[in-house]
Design a binder for these strands. Sequence first.
DNA 1: CAGTATCCTCGACGATACTG
DNA 2: CAGTATCGTCGAGGATACTG
Lengths: 117, 117
Amino acid sequence: MDTVKRPRYASYAGAGCPVEASLELFSGKGKGMILYHLLEGTLRFNELKRRVGNMTQRMLTKQLRELESFDLIHREIYPEIPPKVEYSLTETGRTLEPILLALKDWGEQHALPKLLK
Amino acid sequence: MDTVKRPRYASYAGAGCPVEASLELFSGKGKGMILYHLLEGTLRFNELKRRVGNMTQRMLTKQLRELESFDLIHREIYPEIPPKVEYSLTETGRTLEPILLALKDWGEQHALPKLLK
DNA sequence: CAGTATCCTCGACGATACTG
DNA sequence: CAGTATCGTCGAGGATACTG
């Protein structure tokens, strides 16, 4: 099983940089998208998977676990058959909303055009 | 006989997602920090290197080149001896200011505490 | 000063198969 | 449905040495 990647360096100088620290938490593969979709509300695993596009199940699970460990999302398990698991933003996660929306706006104006060039 | 090599996934999942697109541009190793420091003004290579902490020269160069290719920073070369190269934000780069400041604030309030826990 | 050039490790990630 | 488990590759990125 893959382990969560911690700061590579015991004390990497960026460790003290709050900008890097923020990015460290939600810039992993697909995390931005996951958080963004969860702004709309609670979603089940497969709903999320559909919205997130072609991300492997393995990766989605991994990213979700990391976000959960950072207390940005909450995972609610319903002990039913078939299984049902719902993901939602935590209070802390919701504080990211303005940033996520800003990233979305900026992306539409600047990032997407450059990437699709 | 040799097996055919398959191309890696050409596009990341969520290619159309503007949030991911934004993160794609400046979430690379150290890019956030670089951009943040350049908010203060033009910096020479070694000044940047000092502020960015212990990032290898190789990595710094690479990140700078990428940011340049995205037109977020400008590289001004002075043909002198010893060499002098100055980095600054482009117009587009400067549009990131509110986001970078938001990331910094959020990082101080939420990210750093969690990472240092 | 501001970079290249090389070499090498190691872990992120995709693919696939299996399960409660 | 919502995951694990296992395997293999590939490339990010560190270390080091050299240079106009």
